[in-house]
Design a protein around this nucleic acid. Sequence first.
RNA 1: CGGGGCGUAGCUUAGCUUGGUAGAGCGCGUGGUUUGGGACCACGAGGUCGGAGGUUCAAAUCCUCUCGCCCCGACCA
Length: 520
Amino acid sequence: MSHMRHICRITEMSHSTLKTAITPRRDEDFPEWYQQVIRAAELAEPSDVRGCMVIRPWGYGIWENMQRQLDGMFRATGHRNAYFPLFIPLSYFAREAEHVEGFAKECAVVTHTRLEADADGKLKPGSPLSEPLVVRPTSETIIGASYAKWVQSYRDLPILINQWANVVRWEMRPRLFLRTTEFLWQEGHTVHETESEARGETRLILDLYERFVRDHLAIPVFTGAKSESEKFPGAVETLTLEAMVQDRKAIQAGTSHFLGQNFARASGIQFQNREGKQEFGWTTSWGMTTRLVGTLVMMHGDDDGLVLPPRIAPTQIVILPITAKEETRAAVLEACDKLAMGLRDSRYADFPVEVLVDRRDVGGGVKNWEWIKKGVPLRVEIGPRDLEKNAVEISRRDQAVKSKESMPMEEFVARAPEILRSVQDTLYARAKKFRDENTRVIDSKEDFYGFFTSKNPEKPELHGGFALAHWNGSREIEERIKNDLKVTIRVIPLDDSPEPGKCIFTGEPSQRRVVWAKSY
RNA sequence: CGGGGCGUAGCUUAGCUUGGUAGAGCGCGUGGUUUGGGACCACGAGGUCGGAGGUUCAAAUCCUCUCGCCCCGACCA
């Protein structure tokens, strides 16, 4: 009899151990899991406006942290913020042919001002504009118009400006954070005296971005150039950062473009050089977007929800008072506040530690799970028993949800920054390990096709990854691989160690391996 | 924009084939019992079944149109 009961309990336990906070699991249905995490973590929700989303405080808090950190890095490298119009006169936009071709299909266009009631009392657009206005999909042309006025002499250069803004791209298939009609970003736009200086800027920003995603978002990336067919419309060269998320697809985490003199010519950005001759400026542009929030979800999230790197988490430590017994409640709450104050006095990664005491009158278990789903790096429980020992129970989000460690309160206050650092490091190491395990050096066409073909076409399992393979440099091959496998060249490494070989598709000579993958 | 799927309460959904104007679980509210935990009991609020038209005595259910969402494709940060 007691034996039976014992077995039942074990069954029950293993059942609850298997239960995950997010349904479905990542391995069951990755796209659906992604959406459920965003909802469960209260990052964002679809709005009534097709393709647009509402970014909720927790999601926006992550974006604000990204802004704060990137903004500091921009300032430290001599950039300043400014703001340019949302609307771009159609004629300005039309100035750069390749640019137009690239963006025309996704432009929202304002053609009228004012609303007027018709006979039925329905509101209709009233006066047509003499010239339609394009809602910026990117701001090269409108910013270029200002730069043309500001630049007269080489002494006016360089111009190093960034803007934080929203942009609109009328995409066909929106997905929360990854591809929405309106999104938030920063766009840097610079003008330089020489080609090499502008190329240097493009590279400087690429390195800055790489540091940012590595150190703050715990995201390892491959960097390098885009192929002709993948580069920014109007750019001479596009540098990119490519990360691998947990379904092994590539996602672009940021771009930095060397625009040559294309846009300077289009906008009339001209200056008198040191020889007294008129010359077009050399421009760059570069950006990172709210897509990074989605990247973070897919990079670190698990079957219990979001997992946030401490450096980007809006709240780094949440304190959960165990106030089960009325008679100890006040003492527990007081201890929590005291602990919070102590923690806020310490610093982690240049800022005071972000601590929240969750005093809400919500069941303890529910409360705990909410914070798990939101991905808070550290959860700290304080109950009457801990009070007696002057200790706390801490749970790290990078470890199993049930795992807890007891620690003297003093020690925890002293060690909190170190523990946060450890969580941050673990997430990076884990992501890098995953990326490396799913990156293959491939030397034959057969292996290449095998790598990117699922075993079960009906319900494709997670497969593929990054393939490092030689390529003859032709657009035709890219096109064919894209058609056959939906695989594209994500990045052509810039580096230092060219490794000559033979194109695995044609046998022609190749200077270096390039990175192939399916992508977002 | 092409192919597929789906719209019933905040969420997940039953009912639809064989018409008779809605049921559940979770969540929510109140009261109580609990308390190192996604607890339990009782009571309760919440749905013009995506929208419009049609067939019918009668439509969530049948027909037509329409809107939206999701997945795959083309495109993109």
